[in-house]
């Protein structure tokens, strides 16, 4: 009977560890909201989210320019990264010979592992001067940040898309090839559409990473809290807003930075819900619930 007691105890300990995720997430959301709420209340949630002006010295807090900054950089980065990742994934899954794959896989893995502060540093030292020379201005801009973000989200989207492409049964491919389609036609008309839900999941994860990135963006985006007139002008992301000012923020300003965190959290949760919905749909539509 001692053994049964041990089994019982082990399961409870494991369960406790599993539940810790819920506790942590509740603590995070709870504490961030508790600290951010005073600012939301004082400024008014709508004024806070849609306010065009962020001037802590006058206790005016509107994060709309930063929302535009975050979403803009993310969108630009995706415009570059999505086609590149999808082609890269197709290359890895379908075209690349074995030796090439053996080089490229660790390459992607390493790109994903490079610290974000290194990306930022590289951007600051190499990319910003390059942009300044070729596009004018200070070189710190939304575009510069998006280029760095592109390289950062590329491994995420690429590896998830590759998995999705690989999970397509070989029979589909053979059926298409046997009908006389070229390899590219087969990829375009059969494999890619079948892998699309998985690829979309990868893209959304990439979106999350782009929105959440702090250090790399801070170092190259210029960080002016106004809506940029063009992609060559500086912009500030929500994440940067917190990181830049937390060092000296007091009183309402301090709370307003936590409220910025609430906005970030909400964006991420929306993305998560969308991902779960897509995965749910995929399970229902593909394979009648068996996949």
């Amino acid at each position: 009977m001692a053994r049964n007691w041990e089994e019982f105890l082990v399961e409870k300990v494991l369960l406790l560890a599993a539940i810790s995720s819920i506790i942590i997430i509740l603590l995070i959301i709870g504490f961030v909201i508790q600290q951010g709420l005073p600012a939301m209340e004082q400024v008014g949630p709508l004024n806070f989210i849609f306010g065009m002006d962020w001037s802590p010295s006058y206790d005016i807090y509107g994060v709309f320019p930063m929302i535009v900054g975050s979403l803009g950089m993310m969108a630009l980065a995706l415009i570059f990264a999505v086609p590149l990742s999808i082609f890269g994934a197709i290359f890895l899954a379908e075209v690349a010979p074995k030796t090439m794959r053996r080089i490229l896989k660790p390459t992607i893995q390493t790109l994903a592992g490079i610290p974000s502060v290194i990306y930022g540093f590289f951007g600051l030292i190499v990319l910003v001067p390059f942009m300044r020379i070729h596009f004018g201005g200070s070189g710190f801009s939304m575009l510069t940040a998006s280029i760095i973000l592109t390289v950062m989200v590329l491994p995420t989207i690429l590896s998830i898309s590759e998995d999705a492409l690989r999970s397509i049964p070989l029979e589909y491919k053979e059926a298409s090839l046997a009908l006389g389609a070229t390899h590219w036609q087969t990829i375009k008309n059969v494999i890619f559409p079948a892998a699309l839900p998985g690829i979309v999941t990868g893209i959304i994860l990439g979106m999350g990473r782009a929105i959440g990135e702090t250090m790399a963006v801070i170092m190259v985006a210029g960080n002016t809290p106004i809506i940029p007139g063009s992609i060559l002008e500086p912009a500030r992301a929500l994440t940067s807003n917190i990181a830049l000012e937390m060092g000296y923020a007091l009183g309402l300003h301090y709370n307003a930075l936590f409220a910025t965190g609430i906005v970030l959290l909400m964006m991420i949760i929306v993305l998560l819900v969308v991902t779960n919905y897509i995965n749910y749909k995929r399970k229902v539509t593909v394979g009648g619930g068996y996949l």
Binding site: I24, L27, V32, Q34, G208, T214, M246, L265, I268
Partner: peptide, 25 residues
Amino acid sequence: KAIRFAAETLASIPSIVFGLFGLTF
């Protein structure tokens, strides 16, 4: 399901928000 969703959320929270939490908690 709640545990899985919590773990997923934890994985996608921006690092600066972890920083905020670390600061206040």
